[in-house]
Amino acid sequence: MLLNIEHQTQYVFSEMVQYTIQQLRLTPRNGYRQAVKHWQIKVNGQLTPFEDAFGNLSHTLVIDQPHEALLITVSGAVETGVETEPPEQALPAEIYLRDTPLTQADAAMAEFARPFANAPLTDLMHALRERMQYIKGATQVDTPAAQAFRLGKGVCQDHAHAFIGCCRSLGLPARYVSGYLFTVDGSLMQTHAWVDIWQQGHWLGLDVSNGTLVNETHVRLAHGLDYRSASPVTGSRIGGGIEGMASVVSVNQQARQANPQEQARLLQQAQSAQQ
């Protein structure tokens, strides 16, 4: 499946920003049954490419001129469901047994996972999906897995963190994956998250929020121990006052023409987020 992707992230600031530095994990790589046909990042700043500790294709963005807004646009085409050579492992799988504050399983999560120790991973996935309803706004980006599990609700990030915590409690290396998801109706206009589990000498991808194995509708950007180490954009700035941010993702089987009205709406959403 050939997927055309456009992802825009708009920041606005109430005061002038003197300096911005960000790490962008916004470049897919070949492998994991995907082949990148073309890809580009557009931003008004200096980009320096590098490969991070987890093997993700990344860029450091530096803007050392005063600015009151920042727009990051990535676009390209990725063919999925193809035979590819698996990428070289940047780290041993055992690294992904390491807990983080966002994925740490508490006693309730460990007890929940224990009956699935010898069951197919899909059984644990479906049970967790029933235990945690998909509800937007119930959690934040820094909500720990144990808290979301107690609430019994969250979004794809929370499902991924909770599933990772459950799997690690069973001794299974698990990692967080960020990327894009194609839906026929275009209902998902944001980045998506799922999980890789190491078993029998390879990584198995599971999309907990949708209750499926990872397939040709998924495009992988980056992976790490949790959201923080695989987030598409992280960074810091000097100055800026109150920040507003909005993003929109388009994943289609046909190429799209740029629409100036969409950018205007994105700017308005970022400005509204400042309130």
Rank of each mutant, 00 (worst) to 15 (best):
Gln18Ile: 02
Gln40Cys: 12
Gly45Cys: 01
Ile21Asn: 06
Thr27Glu: 14
Thr48Val: 13
Arg25Met: 12
Tyr32Lys: 02
Lys37Gly: 10
Leu3Gln: 07
Trp39Arg: 06
Trp39Gly: 04
Leu26Arg: 03
Thr20Ile: 14
Val36Glu: 00
Phe50Thr: 09
Thr9Cys: 06
Arg29Glu: 08
Arg29Tyr: 03
Leu47Glu: 11
Arg25Leu: 12
Val36Gly: 00
Tyr19Phe: 15
Phe13Asn: 08
Thr9Asp: 08
Asn30Val: 03
Trp39Thr: 04
Gln40Thr: 14
Leu26Val: 11
Ala35Asp: 05
His7Phe: 14
Tyr32Arg: 10
His7Thr: 07
Lys42Trp: 13
Leu26Ala: 07
Met16Ala: 12
Asn30Ser: 10
Val17Lys: 00
Gln8Ala: 10
Thr27Leu: 10
Gly45Ser: 09
Val17Trp: 05
Val12Tyr: 00
Val17Asp: 04
Ala35Met: 05
Gln34Lys: 05
Leu3Phe: 04
Gln34Leu: 06
Arg33Leu: 03
Gln18His: 14
Gln40Leu: 12
Val17Asn: 10
Gln10Gly: 04
Val17Ser: 08
Gln18Ala: 14
Thr27His: 09
Arg33Trp: 00
Asn44Phe: 09
Thr48Leu: 14
Gln46Glu: 15
Val17Gly: 06
Leu3Asn: 03
Met16Asn: 08
Leu47Thr: 08
Arg25Val: 09
Pro49Ala: 15
Trp39Val: 06
Glu6Arg: 12
Phe50Asp: 11
Leu47Asp: 10
Lys42Ser: 15
Ala35Phe: 00
Phe50Met: 11
Thr9Glu: 05
Leu26Lys: 01
Pro28Ala: 07
Phe13Cys: 07
Gln23Gly: 12
Asn4Asp: 08
Gln8Cys: 08
Val43Leu: 05
Gln22Ser: 13
Val36His: 00
Leu24Phe: 02
Asn4Lys: 04
Val43Tyr: 03
Thr9Arg: 00
Arg33Glu: 09
Ala35Cys: 04
Pro49Gly: 09
Ala35Glu: 05
Gly31Arg: 06
Ile5Trp: 00
Ile41Asp: 04
Val43Gly: 10
Lys37Thr: 13
Thr27Asn: 11
His38Met: 13
Leu47Cys: 11
Phe13Ser: 07
Tyr11Asn: 06
Gln8Asn: 08
Lys42Gln: 15
Tyr19Ser: 04
Thr48Pro: 09
His7Ser: 06
Phe13Arg: 08
Gln46Thr: 13
His38Val: 07
Trp39Lys: 02
Asn4Ser: 13
Gln22Cys: 12
Leu3Tyr: 03
Leu3Val: 04
Val43Ser: 11
Gln18Lys: 11
His7Asn: 11
Leu26Tyr: 02
Tyr32Met: 12
Thr48Gln: 14
Arg29Ile: 10
Asn44Lys: 14
Gln18Glu: 14
Tyr11Glu: 05
Gln8Gly: 01
Arg25Gln: 13
Leu3Lys: 04
Ile5Ser: 01
Asn30Arg: 08
Gln8Trp: 08
Phe50Ala: 12
Gln10Tyr: 11
Pro49Asp: 12
Thr9Phe: 01
